Amino acid sequence: MKIVFLVLLGLHSAAAVTHSLKNIVTASSQVPNFPEFVIVGMVDDVQIQHYDSNTTRLVPKQDWANRVTEDNPQHWERYTARCLGLQQIFKGYIETLKHRFNQTGGVHIFQWVGGCEWDDETGEVSGFRQVGYDGEDFLSWDVKTNTWIAPKQQAVITKNSWNNDKALMAHYKYLLSQDCPDWLKKLVNYGRSSLMRTELPSVSLLQKTPSSPVSCFATGFYPDRAMIFWRKDGEELHQDVELGEILPNHDGSFQMNVDLNLSSVTPEDWRRYECVFHLSGVKDDIITKLDKTAIQTNWGKTGDGRDGGFPLGAVIGGVVVLLLLVVGIVGFFLWKKNKKGKDGVQPANTTDASSSSLSSSVEVQNTGL
């Protein structure tokens, strides 16, 4: 089984008007050095709460997230108890699915994602749920019909059982169309100063060897809604360029790069090229001219005699944080991409209705799988 780790990235900028509340629940079997059960809650893809079976405590991960105790002083204790209950239910889910798929030992992962989105400009709200098992879709929720869809034969029995519980399906609709958005609005208000901040990056030109592509490297920006690209004579380039992924830094900011292959470019034409960094919500772009004397290298001196060298600390820091996010936040990515729309993105269910970031999007089916 191919295991792909889930990377929790992406925040909304001040210009963004769509906010999201999401809970990711991961149960695992026989995964070395990893908790058997993990819950991560996120607002605008920023982690706000965490629970795992090793600590058996639901705890806030942002200072502003702890403001939930203003209205409910026992919030963390109450939902720690709920997480303990979910832990046992999910353990049973894995055993049920192992039997249904005719499996015995080995590594197995059961995961669901649930939550809602809210457009603070139009007021439009929508919910989502999706369930995955061992790296593949198991159940998807159709937001338009408020029913579950089974992409696998082994999921049909669960789909029928859950869809036939009309009271529970009505409860789902209420939670994800009203309760979850109400809680999301409250959390966005709590964290507005953090979620809406804007930080510009430092931009450098890097080159490994004289024949390597020149990399335009931006680090320290926030949020992650950004673009970086090369252009020639004012026109964006699509050939001889390679765009890297956005990665997190240790301080919560982000980094990204775009490489330009100059093998067919004469030195005289270098002045026609420039790197452009654009951050959503910021009017002015950061433009960096392709200048040989400004390139940092790890093979010697730059053209003007200065010491070269990549800012490896920033790069390594991003990689380390990425690994920490993987190990300390969630587990495994069961879907190679989110599939929003009529197939839904998401998971499921509990019959205990209560206003909270956990209950609104993680409702556990008491009748089992």
Rank of each mutant, 00 (worst) to 15 (best):
M1Y: 02
L11P: 02
S13I: 14
V17W: 06
N23G: 08
V25N: 02
Q30T: 02
V31M: 02
P32V: 02
V38G: 01
G41T: 14
M42H: 04
M42R: 05
M42G: 04
V43L: 05
Y51P: 03
D52T: 14
S53N: 12
T55G: 08
R57I: 14
R57F: 09
L58R: 15
V59C: 08
V59T: 12
P60I: 13
D63I: 10
R67D: 08
T69Y: 03
Q74R: 11
R82L: 10
L84P: 09
I89A: 14
G92C: 04
G92A: 11
L97G: 00
H99C: 00
R100Q: 09
N102E: 08
Q103N: 06
G105F: 01
G106N: 00
F110R: 06
Q111N: 05
Q111W: 00
E117H: 10
E121V: 06
G123W: 11
E124N: 09
V125T: 13
S126C: 12
S126F: 05
Q130E: 07
G132T: 08
E136R: 01
S140L: 03
W141L: 11
D142K: 06
D142C: 13
K144T: 11
T147M: 07
I149V: 08
A150N: 06
K152G: 00
Q153Y: 12
Q153I: 13
V156R: 13
K159I: 10
A167M: 14
M169I: 12
W183M: 13
W183G: 09
K186C: 06
R192F: 15
S194P: 07
L195E: 10
R197H: 14
R197E: 11
E199N: 15
S202I: 13
S202C: 10
V203K: 08
L205F: 08
K208I: 01
P210F: 07
P210C: 12
S211I: 01
S212K: 10
S212N: 05
P213T: 01
F217W: 11
D224K: 09
A226H: 06
K232A: 03
D233A: 09
D233I: 03
E235K: 06
E236N: 05
L237I: 01
L237T: 07
D240V: 02
V241T: 15
L243I: 11
G244Q: 15
G244I: 09
I246N: 06
L247Q: 06
Q255S: 15
M256A: 12
D259F: 04
L260M: 04
N261F: 01
V265T: 00
P267L: 07
P267R: 02
Y273G: 03
E274C: 09
H278I: 02
S280R: 03
V282F: 04
D284F: 00
T288W: 15
W299F: 15
G303N: 12
D304L: 02
R306E: 05
R306W: 10
D307W: 10
D307N: 14
G308S: 12
G309P: 13
G309F: 11
P311W: 10
V315F: 10
G317F: 09
V320I: 12
V321F: 10
L322P: 07
V330Y: 00
F332M: 04
F333A: 03
L334Y: 00
W335C: 00
W335S: 02
K337I: 04
K339A: 00
G344W: 03
V345I: 09
P347W: 14
P347F: 09
L358K: 04
L358N: 03
S360L: 03
Q365H: 10
N366E: 11
N366T: 12
N366W: 07
L369D: 08
